[in-house]
């Protein structure tokens, strides 16, 4: 395996559709909840320890080789609103396209055949990481980082936030990122014995509520 594959997978330029998604930042900016670097950091910390943690567990479990269809069901059970399920599958389908071009393999082919409309993105990312020879913890890192880098990039575009400040926010969240990635990987390591119940199920009520509100906006810059 090559650890450097993680840099390719986690690169913001990896062409898997993430650039058009704000991870809930667009409605939070509109509501005045994100208005500067301080409030962006608070938002990202909340998102990381909820949606990010769930994604980290799913990605790590998929990278460990657990049945991606069971993990996809587990992702559905952990995503209580259709706007976020649809977004996760859309991004999963786009991740699948990019992953099959970069790290082709039978696991990706099988998942693409079983879920032609897309599996949840963290599950696809985990299978892609496995196909790239990466470890479960690597997959957890990649997905958790993307979970906060998306909103940070969106805030730069939506608020004309100083990009140095936004990047400093991500740097300040590094310790939280370590913790979340490790929690996700630890939980994934228990799946063999305990099943998918071992995976984190952290919920974020406002992300769920505002995702549906945002999906109903007639005019928006980001797809989610």
């Amino acid at each position: 395996m090559s650890r450097a594959a993680l840099l390719v997978l986690a690169d913001g330029r990896f062409p898997a559709g993430g650039h058009a998604h704000s991870g809930g930042a667009e409605p939070a900016v509109a509501a005045g909840h994100i208005k500067d670097a301080v409030t962006l950091e608070r938002f990202c910390r909340g998102r990381l320890h909820t949606a990010g943690l769930v994604a980290a567990g799913l990605a790590a479990a998929a990278a460990a080789g657990h049945d991606p269809l069971l993990l996809d069901d587990a992702a559905d059970a952990r995503t209580p609103v259709p706007a976020l399920r649809t977004t996760a599958r859309k991004l999963g389908r786009q991740m699948m396209r990019a992953a099959r071009a970069t790290w082709p393999g039978p696991d990706l082919d099988a998942l693409a055949a079983a879920r032609p409309r897309g599996a949840h993105q963290p599950v696809v990312l985990g299978v892609a990481a496995r196909s790239a020879g990466l470890e479960p913890l690597d997959a957890a890192y990649a997905v958790a980082y993307e979970n906060i880098s998306g909103p940070a990039t969106a805030a730069v575009r939506l608020l004309s936030l100083d990009p140095f400040d936004a990047t400093a926010v991500l740097a300040r969240l590094a310790a939280d990122l370590d913790r979340v990635a490790q929690q996700g990987a630890d939980a994934a390591a228990r799946v063999a014995l305990e099943g998918t119940d071992a995976l984190p199920a952290a919920s974020a009520p406002l992300l769920d509520i505002t995702a549906e509100a945002h999906a109903a906006w007639p005019v928006r810059l980001f797809a989610s």
């Binding site: 809930g24 608070r42 939280d176 119940d197």
Partner: peptide, 24 residues
């Protein structure tokens, strides 16, 4: 099959709970 699985963690020891992403 699991239809719904949700964990909430609020208060001391739960990072990020009182933010615009969670309860605000």
């Amino acid at each position: 099959r699991t239809l719904l699985d949700q964990e909430t963690a609020y208060g001391p020891g739960a990072p990020g709970w009182d933010t615009a992403a969670v309860l605000d």
